[in-house]
């Protein structure tokens, strides 16, 4: 039940984009049409879901004091995490290309871009600072990815519509995107009323 709990919490209440500003760069750059936003969103769910448990294992069994090397190597965390993410993205890219060319064509250029998406590294660092266990970190990865996916789809849909509206010229494009994101953030905050504990008890 803790699994569902963490999933709901990270997907809706503590949404990575809307309340932690993670992955904002690609969120703003790739949200001009719903189709591309969908591709990137799927890729983020995929990569977050894979890298999170791997980074958890690395942190637990290689870097911590009672790990494989028996000493505190946590200062290597940044380099190892980013290397894992880069390697995983590369691996996922190759696997997807081999087994599902149609998905590969759909994700296209977005896969390599994900390496520098702050949501991925941010997720791993949050996982460490919140001291999640393995199942929680899987839930956190999937939930965080799903929340990111929802946010980028929503903003892309709104931006497609708002192109036909009469926005002041100076606010057009980027300025409006920021204000919309703020409004969406407030909308998502209303989901704070959901009590995941009560949900889990059912």
């Amino acid at each position: 039940m803790e699994f569902i709990n963490t999933f709901i919490k990270t997907a809706f209440i503590e949404n990575l984009v809307l309340s932690y500003f993670l992955g904002m760069c690609s969120y703003l750059a790739v949200s001009k049409s719903v189709k591309t936003a969908f591709g990137l969103g799927m890729a983020v769910i995929f990569v977050l879901g894979i890298t999170m448990p791997i980074n958890w294992l690395i942190n637990e069994y290689l870097l911590s004091e009672n790990g494989l090397f028996g000493m505190d190597l946590t200062f290597l965390r940044f380099i190892l995490f980013i290397a894992t993410i880069a390697a995983m993205v590369q691996l996922v890219e190759m696997v997807v290309e081999k087994f599902s060319p149609s998905l590969y064509a759909a994700l296209g250029i977005f896969l390599p871009l994900i390496t520098v998406n702050c949501a991925i590294l941010g997720g791993s660092l949050f996982m460490v600072s919140r001291e999640y266990n393995l199942s929680n970190s899987i839930a956190f990865g999937l939930g965080g990815g799903f929340g990111w996916f929802l946010a980028i789809i929503a903003i892309a849909a709104i931006r497609e519509k708002i192109r036909y509206s009469n926005v002041p010229p100076a606010l057009r494009g980027l300025g409006m995107a920021f204000i919309l994101t703020g409004l969406m953030g407030i909308a998502f905050m209303s989901l704070m009323g959901i009590d995941p504990a009560a949900f889990a008890a059912k």
Binding site: L171, F178, G182, G185
Partner: peptide, 19 residues
């Protein structure tokens, strides 16, 4: 205090700068 405020302020800053 909410994260959303940062978005609004940046949006408005962009508005001012671009005008």
């Amino acid at each position: 205090v909410l994260p959303a405020a940062a978005m609004f302020i940046i949006g408005i800053l962009i508005w001012i700068q671009r005008s």
